[in-house]
């Protein structure tokens, strides 16, 4: 029978550091899925997940066991992803490039009959990626957690360490920022 997270952690705390591999195996796929929401390249994803796991190992003593280990590890994951977004924003320029023909076609199609515009097309996915890359880190994080992953506000507050009112304020600002980004990308002319 597989030992519980608490048992594995107790053994690691007692000095059996090699057992950390077991924890990594249990959670790495969830961490990779989370990191892929925020990172652009696969190399960045691997670095983020490694960073999360190192932080988990270093702070393992602070897990008290009153909440499931999964919640605790996801809290660290979200914070490391947020730090990565902020670091990425500091190092990047933000050019807004021309739309491709496919993207223009998708937008024209959306402007004509919004209900018929496909949500499965590569052009639409590319537009989303471009819009999200222009957002401030806090806006991107909050829109991902709230609107894409559909998490409740209270859970987001726990994951991010922000208060519930702050989450609501940031969500409101993030929606407004995304509209501004879409306008800056010149998408208004298609509507």
């Amino acid at each position: 029978m597989e030992s519980s997270d608490a048992e594995v952690i107790a053994a690691i705390r007692a000095g059996d550091a090699a057992l950390f591999e077991e924890l990594v195996r249990r959670y790495q796929s969830r961490l990779f899925a989370t990191a892929r929401r925020y990172a652009r390249r696969e190399v960045e994803v691997e670095d983020i997940v490694q960073q999360i796991l190192i932080r988990v190992f270093q702070n393992l003593d602070s897990w008290r066991g009153d909440a499931p280990f999964e919640h605790w590890i996801m809290r660290i994951a979200v914070r490391v992803c947020y730090d990565a977004l902020r670091a990425h924003q500091r190092n990047r320029e933000q050019p807004i490039t021309e739309l491709s023909t496919e993207e223009s076609d998708w937008l024209e199609n959306h402007a004509t009959i919004p209900e018929n515009s496909s949500i499965d097309s590569d052009a639409a996915r590319s537009l989303v990626t471009r819009a999200f890359e222009q957002l401030a880190p806090a806006s991107r994080l909050i829109l991902t957690l709230l609107e894409i992953e559909d998490r409740p506000v209270k859970e987001i507050a726990e994951l991010t360490g922000w208060s519930v009112p702050l989450v609501k304020v940031r969500a409101f600002r993030a929606r407004a920022e995304m509209r501004r980004v879409l306008s800056r990308m010149g998408l208004e002319k298609y509507l």
């Binding site: 899925a33 892929r36 937008l107 639409a124 989303v128 509507l191």
Partner: peptide, 25 residues
């Protein structure tokens, strides 16, 4: 613009996120 924003969010929500892990990570 809000309509377009919601549509793009819908696109993002529909986009599958891979959870595959590199070998021997």
């Amino acid at each position: 613009l809000e309509g377009l924003r919601q549509k793009l969010i819908q696109v993002a929500r529909h986009q599958p996120v891979s959870d595959c892990v590199p070998y021997a990570f």
